[in-house]
Design a protein around this nucleic acid. Structure first.
Lengths: 294, 294
DNA sequence: CAGGAGATATCCATGAATGCATGACCTCAT
DNA sequence: ATGAGGTCATGCATTCATGGATATCTCCTG
């Protein structure tokens, strides 16, 4: 009888979370996988390790005996992980990340601060221009994009779905009807030549005769106008952990088919062979994973 | 960066054995698998853990740091294993194993002794009759057979290839030419109605006019005759660990296409769901695996 | 000096593990 | 009573890890 160390880890995750589903979430694998692997482990061990129920899994006497050594394995696995981290020649250098202006402003800027704190050798250059940058040609290392790249030379590292919401200044919210329609909203949007940039086309398609009260060709100007109570903006609501005093508040408005959008972390195929790019990519994935859960 | 616990185990196996091939043997996986998985681990860790060469693998400084925690994981994995073993409600009861007479005599008898010592609750019944027993109908639980079962209701648990050799008494060897031919050998073989039982058909096909000097319908009688120097016997040479004072010695003779044969551990499909049968099967597999290596 | 025996790395076919979809069951709130 | 939300177990298609085969290299021995 041989117990795979990963099965020991799976066992401990079930024991500590109290359920197969909880273990699945912790280990980032499927619940059916947990169910089957635990069954196989019990078969190999020749004993039932948990009593199953709708309220989860409770350790049996046989299972109780495995917990202390499994916990010790986990402790030393933590040590191993830290030893490996210290081996990781701390990547250093510049990594260029591009995203839509709001994503840069709201997420990538504070994220860059967190990265700099954790990895002093890493510097992020955030490219917020709305013009398309060619990752294949190295114009940026990483990109957060609304669409999955069709190019064969790019790869999608991670993706989340995020809610879009309408934000206004508190002062404007006070002046609006309690349950305003989309037509009743004064909009802040892109001016030409950027009027094909989201969310303009989307607003045009769900608001007949769409006519913004304020347009600009610069994102910060648009944001300043919204914060000044001039109008409302549609913003992606990525529930990241960086708290920023937001002077804009969300409105309860139905955006129809545009209620959500996708956000994809994209790079050139071989970009992740560069340690500093890979590290930033990993950190971004972690952030997006946690944002997904909120 | 997440390190799979099984990758930690693989890393330690390489560190302790000093080579990918050694780790492969220890973990009972393929050497290409070790090579690839270690490469993937190094990629994830962002550091080289071993310097590779034809003399094996030597730990780098980064690799050195992972060894102590990995060893600790192994220690606790051992504890976990022992805890699991103690959970294993020691199987008890009778298990019937059938094999050819020589295999029973030479291997299964001492094996039964070892099993009884290790698992007092287990009893083996060794069925050495040469007539075919129907595992599907439960006439035996496990069988060691020369052929893989074609039946859909049987399964092959393990298989090894074993050498066949000609054995004689020392006294007979002294009387024989230094390099005897097959024709010059006096044979001990099966009498009717068992003359279709191996090795009779095989000897008949490689020795024109095959005519044994001694036949019997009982294996022990045949063995006694061989030991008395009456003639030679073809025996499977399973290099198991049970030492028995052998009064028969091998002859250097080429048996042509019959130089080796296969040995398969076979049972009914659901037999291994029975704890005692599964335990005996596991122990048999262990023995056959070790015999394979010698 | 050639061949054998060891090592690691890579390709590719195969089979095992995974996750999606779903069923069955239970509990709780409405 | 019903629906929502949680649990675990299972079928099946897909993905991915594995090992056999092989290439390449080095060292040792006859």
């Amino acid at each position: 009888m041989d117990i795979s160390w990963d099965d020991a880890r799976l066992f401990l995750a079930i024991a500590e979370t109290g359920s197969f589903s909880g273990a699945a979430r912790r280990l980032r694998i499927g619940q059916p996988t947990v169910s089957r692997r635990l069954a196989a482990l019990e078969y190999a061990v020749g004993a039932s390790l948990f009593r199953r129920g709708v309220d989860g899994a409770v350790l049996t006497a046989a299972g109780e005996r495995l917990v202390p050594p499994a916990k010790k394995m986990a402790e030393w696995a933590g040590e191993l992980h830290r030893a490996a981290e210290s081996s990781d020649t701390s990547p250093r250098g510049l990594v260029r990340v591009t995203a839509a202006p709001y994503m840069c402003f709201d997420f990538l800027a504070p994220f860059s601060g967190a990265v700099a704190k954790k990895h002093p050798g890493l510097r992020l250059e955030v490219l917020s221009g709305i013009q398309y940058l060619d990752l294949g040609r190295g114009e940026a290392d990483l990109a957060l994009r609304a669409r999955c790249p069709p190019n064969a030379d790019l790869k999608r590292v991670y993706g989340v779905q995020i809610r879009n919401a309408v934000f206004v200044a508190k002062s404007l919210k006070a002046k609006l009807p309690k349950r305003p329609t989309l037509q009743q909203i004064p909009w802040v949007a892109w001016a030409p030549p950027f009027d094909a940039t989201p969310p303009n086309p989307q607003l045009e398609s769900i608001i007949p005769g769409f006519s913004p009260v304020f347009t600009a060709d610069n994102y910060l100007v648009m944001l300043a106008a919204a914060e000044a109570g001039v109008g409302a903006m549609v913003l992606g609501d990525l529930r990241h952990r960086f708290v920023r005093e937001r002077s804009l508040v969300p409105l309860e408005l139905d955006l129809g088919p545009y209620a959500t959008s996708e956000l994809h972390l994209v790079c050139a195929k071989s970009a992740l062979d560069i340690p500093r790019v890979r590290k930033v990519s990993e950190l971004l994935v972690e952030e997006l994973e946690q944002a997904k859960k909120r």
